[in-house]
């Protein structure tokens, strides 16, 4: 088929057909992303509240208020810390897992299935499960430590109290949130890295081995450089996921203790919806847009490079 108009129907005109095929996707993006984004910009420049249908133009006052608010600044910092720390850990662990899974061994499919489970479970359910694991009274981690003689008596390495209080101490609460982010995103990153490893031509690896490259040398000089674009994609994808997620923080800590785990997504919700200040909530949420847009652009560029290589 040449695609030229030979008097056939619309199905035979390639250009028209392409437009028709892509139109639903464009309509979806405009309705679900474009319109809400424009509305959020509109709200952020107004005095809108959840309870007042009428709102007026207010200029940049909501952005100035957000920047003057110490909780916002802390949430901004936490958002970056959570995203960068958790995704750095994810990339290292997923690399190890992907390397292990690329080797032949018995029960590989079962292991792959188990690794994918956290990704397939609804995040709210997973987070509630972790909330129980970190419970102040019934934490199974604490129970194990007590049984192992590490916790609960004077002189024990984890302290004399009966529990560790994972979510009650600022640093531990942050670490707990990072752990859940890692648990959540590790399967996806592993699959992405596994796909990258499988794409390396076998003859390159064989040539490296003939030249004496083994283990770390092979990873450092062959597999990591060749899969760098795909590692970048996994990293940036994870950053976007972590940056925009509020479920884990909302369920585990609600941003506490004393805002130590507050992130922009939760602060947007507390200010804009729970507190009723829709305009301020919109302004806070929009602070994420330039960063996310930049990451998305980078992601697309890397994806194209990965495709070419």
């Amino acid at each position: 088929m040449t695609g030229q108009d030979d008097g056939g129907g619309i199905r035979d005109r390639a250009g028209t057909l392409a437009v028709l095929m892509i139109a639903p996707a464009i309509a979806y993006i405009v309705a679900m992303i474009g319109v809400p984004l424009l509305l959020a910009i509109n709200y952020s420049l107004s005095d809108a509240t959840t309870g007042d249908p009428v709102h007026h133009y207010a200029g940049l006052v909501n952005y100035r208020s957000a920047l003057a608010d110490p909780v916002f600044r802390l949430a901004l910092k936490n958002t970056f810390v959570f995203a960068l720390v958790s995704q750095s850990i994810v990339i290292v662990l997923s690399r190890v897992l992907a390397s292990a899974l690329s080797m032949p061994f018995r029960g590989k499919w079962a292991v792959r299935f188990l690794i994918m489970l956290p990704w397939t479970a609804p995040i709210a359910l997973g987070a509630i499960g972790w909330l129980w694991m970190y419970d102040s009274i019934y934490s199974p981690f604490d129970w194990l430590y007590r049984r192992a003689g590490l916790l609960g008596k004077p002189g024990d390495p984890f302290g004399p109290m009966t529990n560790i209080y994972w979510l009650g101490r600022p640093t531990l609460a942050m670490a707990s949130v990072v752990i859940v982010h890692v648990w959540r995103l590790l399967p996806l990153a592993t699959v992405i890295q596994l796909a990258g490893l499988s794409a390396i031509p076998g003859e390159i690896l064989e040539a490296a081995e003939i030249d004496g490259a083994r283990g770390w040398r092979k990873a450092a000089w062959i597999t990591i450089p060749l899969t760098l674009p795909i590692i970048g994609i996994a990293f940036l994808f994870g950053i976007i996921f972590t940056f925009t997620d509020m479920t884990i923080v909302y369920i585990l800590t609600r941003g506490g203790p004393v805002n130590a785990t507050q992130v922009l997504a939760t602060w947007t919700f507390f200010k804009g919806i729970e507190g009723g200040d829709l305009a301020q909530g919109a302004a806070i949420s929009l602070f994420m847009v330039p960063v996310l847009a930049g990451i998305a652009a980078l992601l697309l560029r890397m994806a194209r490079r990965a495709e070419v290589t």
Binding site: A40, T244, F269, G272, G281
Partner: peptide, 14 residues
């Protein structure tokens, strides 16, 4: 529609 879409955009996360 415009109003509900705007509020929904903020609330949809949770």
């Amino acid at each position: 529609f415009i109003k509900v879409a705007g509020v929904g955009a903020l609330a949809a996360g949770v």
